[in-house]
Design a protein around this nucleic acid. Structure first.
Lengths: 250, 250
DNA sequence: TAGTGGTCTAGACCACTCG
DNA sequence: GAGTGGTCTAGACCACTAG
């Protein structure tokens, strides 16, 4: 990660800066669970920002699970159980930002290929469109925990050989630099299945063992499909999510 | 659902009202995929609102997956594949708002109980604290697809008998009315497991068959745990999520 | 009634994109 | 350079909560 030294960089957007200040205060234990933050008007005065900027900061912290708001009462510190569950985004960023440099994976296959009929429908490209297939095993403490089978969409006239990939070192850096591979959003679909012979052999488990299956379609910043990936995980592996009930007055 | 007749109620908050107008325009096909919306300044003028209100409406539509924004370029209509994936919230609201009145479930057990050591930790109550256990089978087209085993937190001095519950008809209505049961957020944890004998019998599958396991802790509007639920689903059942990569300048 | 968060306004400037 | 979304300001009023 390209971590800046100063987390409280005042040059950043002021609401992000303020949100980080308060987040760190909460993290350091300056507030008890369910304790009220200073009012938004007080915070605005204290930090010399407008109340609207305070509200943006509060909204950000709410999305991070750090605080919750009660109309007419105040903003309150979420209990640790909720604060700890901000992993809901990590499962994605870990697999996008950090991946490629992740310790704990074995590459099984990296090769250019063409879109099958099924993949062309999922990825919204014509059949035969150039794709890059990446198949690998994910390891935790050197033990296999999951299989990834990914297909990346390449530009129509793209040429990408295995040799180029091996020369580049990191596939994801290569994709980002050459093809502006910029994941912005993803749709995931989870279910359970029984391990087939090949999967079982790779994961070191018995055929028929239960597996957690996670299918993912990744979208670019312009919301075009750029990756389809099937991930199969052994029991014990856990996938966490946080969902909120914002009923938007439909 | 308590659906109001007028979706475009101008008495609602103006940004919600505006968001619904645009959402309906998109739904009706007035825009092509990836087509730009009018600029925020134009929308503000056209609908006689401030630009900030337009921005609130755009943000809401972005969260709904209806549009995406590109700095310096405009706001654009998301492709149908993304718009269709707004199910990410439905999996929750279907199980909270609609549940109890859901066609397709068989109640196995409804009974007051006390918190075990494990449950007391998860639900942040002392051991022995009164809980309500609800165990049931979920059906789709009369075929069993999943098992739910839920524990609800009751007030310290609550007394709730099975007779009361059966008299009330809907358990969830009863919980809401008597104990202000107001789910606001939930943390879910997914994994795979093999069906045990009892589960297999209830679901009509073979022991050892793979099951999708979803554990959930539901939090009230004040972010106190109010429910713990384990759900086990047969293969074929799918759980969908949408995740975004908002990297908040950590 | 006083204090809180939620909405709304009307402006300003910045950061980005594209012809 | 013109146009766009993103941020920020300084106010106003509304809706809700509590003593």
């Amino acid at each position: 990660m390209d971590h800046k030294p100063a987390e409280l960089d005042p040059a950043a957007h002021r609401y992000v800066w303020l949100a980080n200040i308060i987040r760190d205060a909460v993290k350091s234990g300056a507030f008890r669970e369910h304790e009220a933050l200073p009012s938004e008007r007080d915070l605005a005065e204290k930090y010399n920002v407008s109340r609207d900027t305070v509200r943006k900061a509060v909204r950000l912290m709410r999305e991070r699970g750090v605080v919750y708001s009660d109309h007419g009462r105040g903003n309150f510190v979420s209990p640790a159980i909720v604060r700890g569950m901000t992993r809901f985004i990590d499962s994605f960023s870990e697999d996008t930002g950090k991946r490629g440099s992740v310790a704990g994976q074995t590459l099984l296959d990296v090769a250019p290929t063409g879109a099958s009929l099924a993949l062309s429908g999922l990825l919204n490209v014509p059949a035969g469109h150039p794709l890059m297939r990446v198949k690998r095993i994910r390891l935790i403490d050197d033990a296999p925990v999951g299989l990834h089978d990914a297909y990346f969409v390449l530009p129509r006239d793209a040429v990408l050989t295995r040799a180029q990939i091996e020369r580049a070192g990191s596939l994801y850096k290569l994709l980002k630099e050459r093809f502006a591979f910029t994941p912005a959003e993803a749709v995931e679909n989870l279910s359970a299945t029984a391990a087939e012979a090949e999967d079982a052999a790779l994961l070191g488990i018995k055929p028929g063992s239960p597996l957690l299956v996670c299918e993912r379609i990744t979208l670019s910043d312009r919301r075009e499909p750029i990756e389809y990936c099937v991930m199969k995980y052994v029991p014990g592996y856990r996938y966490s999510t946080r969902i909120s009930a914002h009923s938007d007055a439909d």
